[in-house]
């Protein structure tokens, strides 16, 4: 009975170890810009089932919050700053994201293929 949680914990620790080891591994980098409350480009095509490093540059003077319910990501990016967000691995499909502070114009989607 008591063996199972222990095994579970072991698995979990291994996972963390693996994660830390894999930290340095190269990931596809994708750049995204925010300008005039618009995402440029507004559609990103990324490889499916791969972890991706998304770099978001906010070229506006005002802050913006990168948000996606589908990707489970949320990050405030101050004016003139950049942010690094890791996403994926993603199943093939469309993943909309938006700028929460200007959601009508700052719209975009990631297409995993």
């Amino acid at each position: 009975m008591s063996k199972y949680p222990v095994a579970c914990m072991g698995k979990f620790l291994l996972l963390i170890l693996f994660a830390c080891l894999s930290l340095g591994a190269a990931r596809p980098e994708i750049k995204l810009e925010i300008r005039d409350h618009l995402f440029l480009p507004s559609e990103l095509v990324v490889p499916a089932n791969t972890k991706i490093k998304l770099i978001v540059y906010n070229r506006d003077p005002t802050p913006e919050e990168f948000e996606s319910y589908e990707l489970n990501r949320e990050k405030v990016i101050m004016g003139g700053q950049k942010a690094i967000i890791f996403i994926g691995p993603l199943k093939p499909g469309e993943y909309p994201f938006f700028g929460e502070f200007n959601p009508k114009t700052a719209q975009g989607k990631i297409i995993a293929e």
Partner: peptide, 9 residues
């Protein structure tokens, strides 16, 4: 459809 051009949506 919704698209971006000329700096606007």
């Amino acid at each position: 459809r919704e698209v971006n051009f000329s700096g606007f949506r």
